[in-house]
């Protein structure tokens, strides 16, 4: 790949046939989308910041993650960066949800 390009900048590159299969969005994906809208409305995150966060995930994660996984990783990084949430509380909350100590919501 051209050295001047970053991995998300793929316009004009060679690629395979377009796969037209789709999938219905899972409820969690819709919540990720909703999260971005709500944070945008509150002036906490902008679409440009979301995209910058996605571009900063690195080529490997970019290709490995699904679309809304990229969004979620970017939003979480941005919220940590802005100190809206803290690393410790996030880690603790994720562990609680995973082990069923806390009800998944909403």
């Amino acid at each position: 790949m051209d050295k001047a390009r970053r991995h998300h900048d793929m316009g004009g590159l060679e690629a395979g046939p377009v796969n037209r299969d789709g999938h219905d969005h899972a409820p969690w994906e819709k919540r990720v989308d909703a999260l971005m809208v709500l944070l945008g409305r509150q002036g906490i995150l902008t679409v440009d910041e979301l995209r910058r966060g996605i571009e900063e995930l690195g080529a490997d994660a970019y290709d490995r993650y699904s679309y809304y996984e990229r969004w979620m990783a970017s939003m979480t990084n941005l919220l940590l960066e802005k100190r809206i949430i803290e690393v410790d509380e996030l880690g603790e909350r994720m562990a609680e949800i995973e082990t069923g100590r806390r009800e998944a919501l909403p």
């Binding site: 969690w28 999260l35 944070l39 979480t76 809206i84 996030l90 994720m94 995973e98 919501l105």
Partner: peptide, 20 residues
């Protein structure tokens, strides 16, 4: 539960708790 799903739930619940 995939990692990013857990992340979504955790982030959402924290933001609700913080009144955002």
């Amino acid at each position: 539960l995939a990692r990013h799903q857990v992340m979504q739930m955790a982030v959402t619940s924290l933001l609700i708790e913080k009144g955002i």
